[in-house]
């Protein structure tokens, strides 16, 4: 089995598929980083205008003020403990900025890495994975090389299993590239790592409102580990689905096209999550897993980290089963 997996990985590399993905990643990350850098100065100006001060570099004073205000509120006996959690974590963040002389407006490599995975997890990353996996089987059927491997004395399921496992390893490689490139480019552009910076997490949605009573801070590196781990999980799920489509559909372009349109079209259906109960079981609406830990407000009632994870897992396992079933029975006519 190991040899079979090795074969599949080598095939993907020599097909230059990984090279293409790496290229796309590099270009996009570079653009994203440049864009951030470009808007940075504008953001600073805007902030200055809003607060009515002349020099946005004077963030220390502003932060100092906000910190004092927060600390006073913490002392206020009239705010219940549950309400204080969000105040406390915000104060922690502000204290960190002051102590470490880090401006909260600018960006750091760690922040950038986090932002990039948050932004790409529900569309861009899946698209990359579809590129990777979409022709795993259909490509070989088209090229005729499937005859070569299916006429060896090896059971069919092993061949598909090798493809699946190779895919899992390649998905990890893609995630690795994403992390590496975003770190590298961000360091060049922003210069500061910021891996210890505290990040707030622990949000939840109760009755359509953001409940911050259980928030806490974790260091940036831990947050990044979590985000990228989630990213890998999403990659695995999309990869399994693509593999299944690749097994069922003969043409590679149809295979990739089906996955892409399902992905993009399906995200429209997230509008109906609260009313049309069925839509929440679609895989496309559950892809934005990082929003659960980052608190960015895409959270909707009824969805939670565990729910989305289970739904996605279900889809992945279902897809894998169907792929195996079809592949082992299929007639190769062409």
């Amino acid at each position: 089995m190991v040899k079979l997996i090795e074969n599949e990985i080598i095939k993907t590399f020599y097909k230059k598929r990984i090279h293409v993905i790496a290229g796309i990643l590099l270009v996009l990350i570079a653009l994203f980083a440049y864009g951030e850098h470009y808007t940075l100065t504008r953001t600073q100006d805007r902030v200055a205008e809003q607060l009515g001060i002349e020099n946005a570099e004077d963030w220390k004073n502003i932060i100092g003020q906000q910190l004092l205000d927060l600390e006073r509120r913490l002392d206020n006996p009239y705010i219940p403990d549950e309400g204080k959690a969000s105040i406390r974590v915000r104060a922690e963040q502000l204290r960190f900025y002051l102590d470490n002389d880090v401006s909260p407006i600018g960006s750091t490599a760690a922040r950038f890495m986090g932002q990039f995975i948050e932004q790409s997890i529900f569309l861009f990353l899946p698209l990359l994975i579809i590129l990777l996996a979409g022709d795993m089987v259909s490509g070989e059927v088209n090229a005729g090389t499937v005859k070569l491997i299916l006429t060896r004395p090896v059971k069919r399921w092993r061949i598909l299993m090798a493809k699946l496992l190779a895919l899992s390893m390649l998905e990890m490689f893609v995630i690795f590239m994403m992390a590496l490139f975003s770190y590298g480019i961000a360091m060049v552009v922003f210069g500061y790592s910021g891996f210890n910076e505290p990040v707030i997490t622990g949000f939840r949605v109760v009755e359509s409102q953001l409940d911050t009573s259980a928030v806490k801070t974790i260091p940036q590196w831990q947050y990044l580990m979590m985000s990228y781990a989630i990213g890998y999980f999403v990659a695995f799920v999309i990869g399994s689905l693509s593999l299944m489509v690749s097994v069922i559909v003969r043409s590679t372009s149809a295979s990739i096209g089906i996955m892409m349109s399902t992905l993009i079209g399906g995200s429209f259906l997230s509008f109906f999550i609260s009313d049309w109960k069925l839509t929440r079981y679609l895989f496309t609406v559950n892809l934005n897993l990082t929003s659960y830990i980052s608190g960015s407000f895409q959270i909707v009632e009824g969805l939670s980290m565990s729910f989305s994870t289970l739904v996605l897992l279900g889809w992945a396992l279902g897809a894998i089963s169907i792929a195996f079933l079809v592949f082992t029975q299929k007639d190769i006519l062409a």
């Binding site: 580990m225 979590m226 990228y228 781990a229 897993l289 830990i293 565990s306």
Partner: peptide, 12 residues
């Protein structure tokens, strides 16, 4: 992955 994902779930 095991560590990160576990963390994410446990925070949830």
């Amino acid at each position: 992955f095991a560590y990160g994902f576990g963390q994410a779930i446990s925070i949830g």
